[in-house]
Amino acid sequence: MAEAMGLILNGLSLLLIGLGLAFFMAGTLGVLRFSTPLNRLHAVTKADNLGLGLVVAGLILQAGSWALVFKYLIIWALVLLSAAAVSHLIGQRAYQQTRQTESGETP
C-alpha cells in the first residue's frame, strides 16, 4: 500500500514537473517568436509563473519535511512578487516608448 502510494506520488510529481517545463518552453518560445515587448511579456509572465508553480507543486510532493515545503512555497511567492514588479516596469517602459513613437516624438 505504502509502495503504491509512493509510486502514485512519484508519478504525479513527475507529471507536474513535466507540465511545468512545458509551460516554460511555451513561454520561451513566446519570447522568441512574438514581435512587440508587450506581447513577449504577456507570453513569458503567464507561462513562467504557472510553470514555476507546477514545478514547485511537483517538488512539494517529493519533499520529505514541512520545512522544505514551506521553503518551496516561499521561493514561488518571491519569484511571483519580483516577476510582477519587474514585468510592470518593463511594460511601463514599453508602453511609454510605443506612445512616444506613435505620437511622433523623439524618444
Partner: peptide, 19 residues
Amino acid sequence: YQALDGEVLQTFAKWLTPL
C-alpha cells in the same frame, strides 16, 4: 533614472526591505 508611473516599484522596495 527613468521616470516612473505608479508606485509599484516603491511598494516592491518596501515589501522587500525586511526580507
